[in-house]
């Protein structure tokens, strides 16, 4: 058993540094995806809430597609298809090719998936805000933008936080799929170590533990965030 643990040491003989670097990539990918997914999801929720039927329909097509496709397939569509499409467009413009590496492809694919799920969370949060809030803001003479920023958004964040927290935990797990298209994330690094050392069970167990630790850290962070979002409830 001691020999196994020494495989995790830091340096040329151990896999500790590689796995740590992979963990860093995993976390970076999830963190890079989050803001895009949130903004897109929020815009989609606005679209679905819109009185304009064409906007609602278009947004619904988006979420139906990206919630229905396996994440792995979305990733391949973006990585292979999106990349070829982009280069075709660049070539037509006479511009040099731009490399879409697996990190960017993963970020785009995961953002598409994340935004379609988060739009549903935002949508149900919108439903939790009564029309009285809009009317009250209107009565105070707030503009539409001010109403959104000062009245609706703070409540929306609180209502959407549990759902979004859940999506964040899912997102962190889904980053593992990007290892399939060559991103040197934690799963890929442990996979390499597993092949080289022939200790597959040990290294994949290490990978699982790292994801568990990440999710525990996230849960603690989320707990604080939720307490912060609820602070108004107590001070009243």
């Amino acid at each position: 058993m001691g020999e196994l643990w020494s495989l995790l040491s830091y340096g040329p003989d151990g896999w500790g540094d590689e796995i740590l670097a992979g963990t860093f990539v995993t976390v970076s990918l999830a963190l890079a995806t989050l803001p895009i997914g949130l903004v897109l999801g929020f815009l989609l929720a606005l679209a679905k809430n819109s009185p304009e039927p064409s906007l609602r329909a278009a947004a619904n097509i988006y979420t139906t597609v990206f919630r229905g496709l396996p994440e792995l397939l979305t990733l391949f569509l973006v990585y292979f298809g999106g990349q070829m499409l982009l280069q075709a467009i660049l070539a037509a413009l006479g511009l040099p090719p731009v490399e879409v590496n697996s990190f960017v492809a993963g970020m785009i694919a995961l953002s598409l998936v994340f935004s379609s799920y988060s739009s549903e969370v935002f949508l149900s949060a919108f439903k939790g805000i009564t029309s009285g809030q809009y009317e009250g803001a209107g009565a105070l003479g707030l503009s539409r933008a001010q109403t959104m920023r000062l009245v609706i958004l703070p409540q929306l964040v609180r209502l959407a936080l549990p759902g979004l927290s859940n999506l964040w935990l899912i997102l962190m797990k889904e980053t593992s799929l990007v290892s399939v298209i060559g991103l040197a994330d934690v799963l890929r690094e442990t996979g390499v170590a597993a092949r080289v050392t022939r200790e597959a069970f040990f290294f994949f167990a290490v990978a699982c533990s790292i994801y568990l630790v990440l999710s525990i850290i996230s849960s603690v962070g989320i707990g604080r965030l939720e307490a912060w979002a609820r602070r108004g409830d107590f001070s009243r």
Binding site: L177, R198, F201, F204, A207
Partner: peptide
Amino acid sequence: VYFFRGTPLLAQTFLVYYGAGTF
């Protein structure tokens, strides 16, 4: 429940598939 919901399905699949090979 925490283990299976907290780790990626892909990692679990690797753990079982390649892990079984070692045993």
